[in-house]
Design a protein around this nucleic acid. Structure first.
Lengths: 152, 152
DNA sequence: TCTGAAACCATCACCTG
DNA sequence: CAGGTGATGGTTTCAGA
């Protein structure tokens, strides 16, 4: 789908605040809310907008620790292993990567104990698991939910 | 802030779809929309809800490549280096980590050329930069925007 | 936490250039 | 065919209980 500058403006606004009303968006980009409604519908249907999500502070819901895990899996078992991995609660992201690790995963857990359990009792026990390295996140100085949207 | 089960239900709904109307939330949790309005306001004020963001498909906005970068920085220069790093366009997340790397960053770029430029001309040129390893993301079989919210 | 009411918004059928 | 108008029914928001 080809995005014009109007679509991009709409995306920038909704990336920044997904609850902005269509009529507010319309005001800002100087169009009618019917047009905004149309365009947003098309952006959703085309898969350009994949969803709208409230960002919740992990600490507030008792997720006190997070880590990035590099994983090596046995050759030929990738598919299998991945499916198991992404079904484990707390596994938030699973990426296939070049370099030292086959898979990089981002996980959340309640505390160090829960993280150890997640690692040793669940991830390390998966069929196809070869080895891993856990990088505990000590802090996140920067985390943006907004991608840079270039002008047309 | 202490969250009761009602707060948690509201958070689950808004994590899944941030544009759910308060009256729809109210229907689902069997309360009035005024109450939902009140509670969401309190959750926002307390910082439990940090924002609402449309998730945009990176490919649709010409961000064709993403990578995870492990970085080592010179001791004593961490603060400085971090500030520079997070101001570079395309740097989406910056985490301080234990283990092999001091910093793990998630970056987006238009294509391999742009990623190389980002790495060599911007990141590797930062004061305090020591060394890095780039793990190009070949695919993301799983990426959730929703944290698991345990029952009270 | 709710009720009620005014202002506001989403949505849609139907125009307009 | 993208964009606008106008009607209507739903939603937000706030005061007051």
């Amino acid at each position: 789908m080809e995005l014009d500058e109007t679509d991009r403006q709409i995306l920038r606004i909704l990336q920044e605040n997904a609850r902005t009303t269509f009529s507010e968006v319309a005001r800002r980009i100087d169009m009618s809310s019917a047009t905004v409604h149309d365009r947003v519908g098309r952006l959703e249907d085309a898969g350009v907008i994949e969803g709208y999500h409230a960002k919740v502070d992990p600490k507030a819901i008792d997720l006190g620790i997070s880590a990035i895990i590099g994983l090596r899996v046995e050759q030929g078992r990738e598919q299998d292993t991945l499916e198991r991995l992404q079904d484990i609660a707390g596994v938030q992201e699973v990426h296939l990567t070049t370099g030292e690790w086959d898979v990089m995963a981002r996980v959340y857990a309640g505390d160090a104990d829960a993280l150890r359990e997640l690692m040793f009792d669940r991830i390390a026990q998966m069929d196809g698991f070869a080895r891993s390295q856990t990088m505990v996140i000590l802090g996140t100085p920067h985390e943006s939910e907004e991608l840079p949207i270039a002008e047309e």
